[in-house]
Design a protein around this nucleic acid. Structure first.
Lengths: 204, 204
DNA sequence: GCCTATTCATACCGTTCGGTATATAGGGAT
DNA sequence: ATCCCTATATACCGAACGGTATGAATAGGC
């Protein structure tokens, strides 16, 4: 009864596709079209699998979206957590803005930010989707606010400027960046936006 | 053959609903749900008319959306054009930001900005919608840029700060404002965002 | 009163939506 | 070889989608 690997040969017929590859395909579709704009037909086409395979492997459309959102945060939003390690609040902001810019300049990924797209779209059916995205965004906001609280305690901000307000301001710029990227702004224009934001960043 | 008013009694059976009231209802639905998220069933319910009446009066869903977008710009975005008359670039920005804030604080209107919502959502079918919104936004951007060009010529900006870049920066903040308003930010938080943006506005 | 023109209400069109029942194919254990 | 379990492919489900055909209702022009 010596089993060398129980993971690679579980039981019945092995699946013929790669879970990660399929999920990456699903992410692309959700990213391009939003949750409601992504049809099962387009999803299965891009993932290279049939509908029953999709449902067996991922549950349903909403569960698939959650897994795609996990992948998105893990692979595409990694710069956000690492940016928090920068030495000053301004450096954090710079790494966040440049990270967002760099992501939008990728020619192989869809434009815009999946989180922003999903928090906007759309009808009543997608309310749980919006709620989930809001929850995750709140956690990102909390992390950045903690970092800015440190910066404020270190005296990096002008008097009267709350870390909470500055966090919200920085997020607004990044959200605006993704909106503009999604509606056809050029890399030059997005770069101008980042540079302008950095040039007006408050100093004490 | 003296006709006092050819407009009020055209020919056949008079319509039993008010065009403007119905259009206002359509605007609410598009505003809440986006173009694709708005179903004909919800539209007709909110407009208080039946589907054939809708098609006879407005054409089809896309034409109805265009008319609703016209109404939106006329009634809800009027502050944008009037803001351009402010004496300085900073005053223009202040009126734009406070105008956007005031609109988001209305308790009877949906949250977020219809233009932003429509430019994000959603699938391939809605590509002409995105294009139309992009066209209108470009005209708003051009108007603000002309105004900032004047300001730059008047020496209101620091050296190296282009009016184009500042216009894009201000739009980004307003877009971020509408994103945050649409995902449940409180009036206090949105007000903080506006105040912070104004407090860092560049001066020469 | 009758014709014409327009609106209204109902019922329906074909298509697409997310999701599944069913039968077949393929690998591990015995 | 047989059994068991899982993945595959096809074909299908009811519901909702945007849009329309149809006939009754309601006005003006003659």
């Amino acid at each position: 009864m010596n089993r060398l690997c129980t993971l690679t040969a579980p039981k019945g017929r092995p699946r013929e596709f790669d879970l990660d590859v399929a999920l990456a395909g699903a992410l692309r579709v959700f990213w391009r079209n939003g949750y409601e704009g992504a049809s099962m037909a387009e999803l299965t086409a891009e993932m290279g699998i049939t509908k029953p395979s999709l449902y067996a492997a991922f549950g349903n459309k909403e569960a698939l979206f959650h897994k795609a959102l996990d992948l998105y945060e893990r692979e595409k939003l990694a710069y956000m957590t690492s940016a928090l390690e920068a030495p000053t609040a301004r450096a954090v902001a710079e790494r966040l803005l440049r990270g967002a810019l760099q992501m939008q300049m990728s020619t192989c990924d869809p434009k815009g930010c999946l989180s922003v797209i999903s928090s906007v779209a759309c009808s009543a059916e997608a309310e749980p989707i919006k709620a989930e995205v809001a929850k995750r965004r709140a956690s990102s906001e909390a992390a950045l606010m903690r970092r800015f609280d440190e910066a404020k305690a270190a005296g990096e901000f002008p008097d009267g400027l709350e870390s909470h307000a500055l966090m919200r301001y920085l997020f607004a710029i990044m959200q605006g960046l993704s909106i503009q990227a999604g509606s056809g702004a050029t890399c030059t224009e997005l770069n101008q936006l980042v540079e302008t934001s950095l040039s007006v960043w408050p100093t004490r």
